[in-house]
Every structure is written in structure tokens, then in C-alpha cells.
Design a protein around this nucleic acid. Structure first.
Lengths: 254, 254
DNA sequence: TCAAAAGTGTTTGTCCTACACCCATGT
DNA sequence: ACATGGGTGTAGGACAAACACTTTTGA
């Protein structure tokens, strides 16, 4: 960590996570002096404090040094030379939330010259989905806090814009790709899956049509189990079919 | 910032543009030792030598040094600290083809640890569309050559994989976004536009349905001009409506 | 007047939406 | 019994594919 005191801080925060390999001596960069960071937009579903309806939340970390000291920022840090991009994203996610990503995909690379005062920083940004229940009891310290995704305060750097783009990506992708299950446990009812879609898309869905849509997608495996206890007909439990493609094929994406 | 003045000067790329992913002698970077490059997959439409049908072509540059000396690679180079990502992509495109991109979009960032022997290189890759006619008389030197996109030789680094992904992206995006006009001049007939779609998608399209599809997209402006000279009814010329969104909204994308 | 492509009309099938309705359970 | 959500059936509209047909030109 000491080495860092000599240079401009990473795009996000350092504290526990940040740098993995701080051997950055006084060396110069091979390229032309741009620093490479990896940040992650982490989505979870949590009931709103008042309405009780589930909404999107994400964890942010407080910056402890300039620039943008005390502002909230996306979790992230410099890219260690010996770590894959997605691995770095998963690691900062874990270090921030003590969770593992159920879905992780590269979002975009932000590299505007003036996005970070002073030093040119290029950030490869990932977005991730984590399980709701687990996220509720996730660590929340002085420097880590969960925020409602559509009620964010002004963030450090261009992070507001990044979150907005990630939100758009999540919402459009939920409509055609089978990723909603990442918010849920291994088994779930169609009503739970529908609740996820409704929360993400912010609109009500017809249960009957939603069922058919999911059934015809070929990504759900019906189990024999049912959920009893409610004062109505028990709902069947389903499991996600990992073999089915998540629809994006011949490319990266994870 | 002081630390930066001590840095090794940019290596960028030498000669014309040789380097696809370039490399360097010195070591160590500000972050943790990763070098940042920008490469571009440039698509143009050219008639196949034999069939005469239009197909996708792209320009590659020959590497003049190790690793992968003499292999063909995507145009690109190190990212200068004072240049925007998209600007760097447009510049290497211009330096390679003497053309301006009619469409330019970030594709993906490739950063596998072992994608370049020896040095960790992270490449932000863009894809671009350029006009067909112009592309035909584009510069072709000893170290720059155009290849049919689906008949590429083994390329340097992971560039075969990158091109494959860019091809997939182009093909899927042509189906829902209005980008095909980027291959054409300012005005064009529906038959020409359809020819572009057919070349990209590699399948015949019904002229009647294609017409309706385009007309209802709201991105075409009908002119009063017609193309005479052919031995059949003259076709109306259309112009692309720049005001119409290209469908991708709230995010980067250009 | 004929070939060929521009451009229009129409049918057919598919998918999505809306909504009526039955099923199974806890209270 | 009955309220509640699980689950099924079905009619109607939007849209796309397929293809017949008319229009306009050059030769």
C-alpha cells in the first residue's frame, strides 16, 4: 500500500481491496502513460424500505483520498498484471460484498481523457448480479454502503453515467436473455422469477403469459418439488438449465 | 503527476502502422504493469473476385517484429495518453486505409493474460464501417492488405477470435439497428441498401418486405431523385435520417 | 413488345396480449 | 365455503413471410 501514497489513487477505493500488485515503482508505463483500472457495477434486489416492493440496489465504496475524497464510487482498483480482467472484477466484488457473482459480464471501457483529474485512467467496467437474500446480510461498513440504483447521490468520476449505462444494459438484456435467475437461489417458483423481471423492468407482467414465455425458452427445468404453506395452490419449483446458452454466442460475455 | 514525467517515452507504433498489439522493451507501468492498446476491425463491402457478389472485407497490417513477426494483424497501436479511445481507433483506421469511418463503435476489451507472449497487453477494440467504393481504391501497400472477412489466414495474437466476434456483432446489429447505410454514399436506392443487408447477412431478402421494413423504420428520407439508365423502372433515391436514433440509447456506443 | 427490376397488394401463419376460467390449498 | 395465487385455454391484434400482381423503363 505504501507505494500508492506516491501516486494518484485508483479510480475506486483502495482500503482492503484496491491494489493487488503494488510493485509500481517509479517505472514508466510501456504504452504512453495510461493507467488501467477495473470497476464493477453490482446489482442486487432488495425490498424498498417503504413500499416493500423489490428494487435494484448496488454497493458503493467511499473514497478516502483525492480526487473526489469522501464521494461514493464503484468498487474497483488497478488491474494487477497477473490477473484476468473478469477475475479482477470478481475479486473486488467479493472484497466489497463478501459475495460471489452469479452473473458477470463486461460492460464497457471508459477512457475519456478528463474523466479523472490529473491522471489518465482507462477503466474496464463489468456488471454483476448477486443473490438478493444474501445481499441483505452483506457487509455494510463505514466505507461500504448499499444504495437504491435509481436514487444515487452524485458519485466520483463519471460513475453516475456508468451506472446509468449498466442499468440500461441490465433492463434490455433481461428481456431477451435468461439472466434473471442470477438474483435467485438454485430453485425458484415462476412467481419469484416474475417478481425479478417486474422489479428490473419496473412494470407488471401477466403471470399466464410470463409462464408460457419462460416455458418456451427452454432454459427452465421443472422439478417435482412444490412450495407449500401459502394459502393457495402450491407452486412448482424450477431450476435453471445451465446447458442452455444465455444467448450471446460467439463472443466474450463470460 | 510528477511520476509521469519520468516515464519511458511512448513507443506507440513505428513505421506505417505495423503494430497490431505492439510491444516494448521497458517494463512496469503505473498501474501494475499492463499495456494499453487500441485496435480496430474495419469492415468494407467489396465484390468477390470470382462470384462478383459483394462480401465483407477488412484490411490487415503485416507485423514487422516479434512476436508474431510477418503475421497479419488488426490495425492498432498503443494508446497515447492525450488521445481519446475512439479517436485513436479512428486515427489508426485513417492511417491504414486513408479513409474516415462512417460508423465506429467500441466492440470489447480483450485482456487475457497470455494473449500476448511476454508482456501483458490489454486491447480496447473498436469496429468500424467504411464506404465500399472508396475502399476499393484504398491504399494497399506491402504491409497493408485487404482480406475476405470469412477467409482469413491465421492472425497474430487472438485477432482471429476478435474478428469473429466483430463479425457476429455486425451481423446481429444490422438486423435491428440502422447502420447499413454506412457502407453506402449519401443517397442510395433501396436495392443498394438491400444488397448491403444481403451481403452482411449472407442470405436473400424479399424486396417487397425489405422495402416496407425500411420505410416503417423512420430512418429513411425519400428524395425526389431517381436513378435512370437501367433497363427497368428507375429507382427512387433515399437519404439516411441522421436525427433518428441508431437504437442503443443511454450509453456509449459513439 | 419484352425483359427486368421497381413498387403495391393480399394472404397466411406466427407470436404476443388480454382476459376468462379452472385448480389446489390454508384458514 | 371462500379467498388467493397457481396454472390452462382461447380469442383478437400486430407483425412478418411468401408470393401474386402492376408499373415503368431500356433495348
Amino acid at each position: 500500500m505504501l507505494e500508492h501514497s506516491v501516486q494518484t489513487p485508483p479510480i475506486a477505493q483502495q482500503s482492503p481491496l484496491a491494489v493487488g500488485d503494488a510493485r509500481a515503482s517509479a517505472a514508466g508505463s510501456v504504452a504512453a502513460g495510461s493507467s488501467l483500472a477495473v470497476s464493477t457495477v453490482i446489482f442486487a434486489l432488495r425490498p424498498d424500505d417503504e413500499s416493500g416492493l423489490k428494487t435494484l440496489w448496488l454497493p458503493l465504496v467511499r473514497r478516502t483520498r483525492d480526487p473526489h475524497r469522501d464521494l461514493w464510487a464503484l468498487p474497483g482498483g488497478w488491474l494487477p498484471a497477473d490477473e484476468e480482467l473478469a477475475a479482477a472484477a470478481a475479486r473486488t466484488l467479493r472484497e466489497t460484498t463478501e459475495l460471489s457473482p452469479r452473473y458477470l459480464e463486461q460492460l464497457y471501457t471508459f477512457g475519456d481523457i478528463d474523466r479523472s483529474p490529473g491522471l489518465r485512467v482507462v477503466s474496464v467496467v463489468y456488471w454483476a448480479l448477486v443473490r438478493s437474500e444474501v445481499a441483505e446480510r452483506a457487509s455494510v461498513g463505514e466505507n461500504v454502503r448499499w444504495f437504491a440504483a435509481d436514487q444515487l447521490p452524485p458519485l466520483a468520476f463519471d460513475h453516475n453515467r456508468i451506472v446509468e449505462y449498466a442499468l440500461w444494459r441490465l433492463r434490455t438484456k433481461v428481456e431477451y436473455a435468461r439472466i434473471a435467475h442470477a438474483f435467485l437461489g438454485d430453485t425458484f417458483t415462476l412467481a419469484q422469477l416474475r417478481e425479478v423481471h417486474e422489479a428490473v423492468l419496473q412494470k407488471a407482467l401477466d403471470p399466464a403469459n410470463f409462464r408460457r414465455s419462460m416455458e418456451s425458452s427452454g432454459t427452465l427445468i421443472s422439478t417435482d418439488q412444490h412450495v407449500a404453506g401459502a394459502r393457495h395452490r402450491p407452486a412448482r419449483l424450477y431450476r435453471y438449465d445451465g446447458r442452455a446458452s444465455e444467448h450471446d454466442p460467439p463472443g466474450p460475455t463470460l
